[in-house]
């Protein structure tokens, strides 16, 4: 073969091209993990974290999807847990997860940096608020549809939502940074 004399300069390609479907695949795999943890996770000191919400919060923090995409992510998150969960109230999830995912996206994409000293606490904040949003939606629907008494709602359900949200905040914060480091690596070296 004929050799061209001079090697031409490297041209830089559009950086964002990589991974048109990365948001799809990372969400898929994290939601799969969320579903199995939902199945096998022991309760830790009486609290069972909501792994599904924690996982899509991580996915959203990593990929920063559009609002339409996060609405879909929420629906898929709810749908995955319908066939795999032990017992639940599917309609509650079908509404509460999209709300959680959208709130998370709004926080991730449209707020300023949140730091505590040198520590970036945005993952924890998004994890906490999204879980509260999703959880409150869920229990409110449960209350309205099943016409539960207000006292059950106030003294039994709301405290659970906030405890789970605290656990989720910790999970999101701990898992986000190692995941982010790996997520940003490009290529094989």
């Amino acid at each position: 073969m004929e050799l061209e004399k001079n090697e031409s300069e490297l041209t830089i390609h559009d950086k964002n091209k990589g991974g048109r479907y990365r948001w799809v695949t990372i969400t898929t795999l994290l939601l799969a993990i969320g579903a199995i943890l939902h199945l096998v996770s022991p309760n830790i000191g009486g609290v069972t974290p909501n792994w599904t919400i924690a996982m899509y919060c991580i996915a959203i923090n990593l990929t920063k999807p559009t609002l339409k995409q996060s609405f879909g992510i929420g629906l898929v998150a709810a749908a995955i847990n319908i066939p795999t969960s032990k017992s639940a109230f599917p309609y509650g999830n079908l509404l509460s997860e999209p709300i959680g995912a959208i709130i998370c996206t709004l926080l991730v994409c449209h707020t300023f940096n949140m730091t505590l000293g040198k520590l970036n606490i945005k993952p924890a904040v998004t994890g906490f608020i999204s879980t509260v949003a999703s959880g409150m939606t869920f229990i409110t629907i449960l209350k309205v549809v099943l016409s539960l008494p207000l006292s059950v709602y106030l003294y039994a359900m709301i405290p659970v939502v906030f405890t789970v949200a605290a656990a989720n905040a910790a999970i999101t914060q701990i898992l986000y940074f190692p995941a982010k480091k790996l997520f940003d690596l490009k290529g094989d070296q």
């Binding site: 991974g19 048109r20 479907y21 990365r22 799809v24 695949t25 990372i26 898929t28 795999l29 994290l30 799969a32 993990i33 943890l37 996770s41 022991p42 830790i44 000191g45 991580i58 990593l62 656990a167 910790a170 999970i171 701990i174 898992l175 190692p178 995941a179 790996l182 997520f183």
Partner: peptide
């Protein structure tokens, strides 16, 4: 107990991140 459980979950999540690249590429 929380942290010992996270030690199980972290490698799982990192595996998912690595796999997501292969999967997106493969798609």
């Amino acid at each position: 107990r929380f942290f010992s459980y996270m030690a199980v979950i972290k490698p799982l999540v990192l595996k998912a991140v690595t796999k997501s690249e292969t999967m997106a590429l493969s798609l």
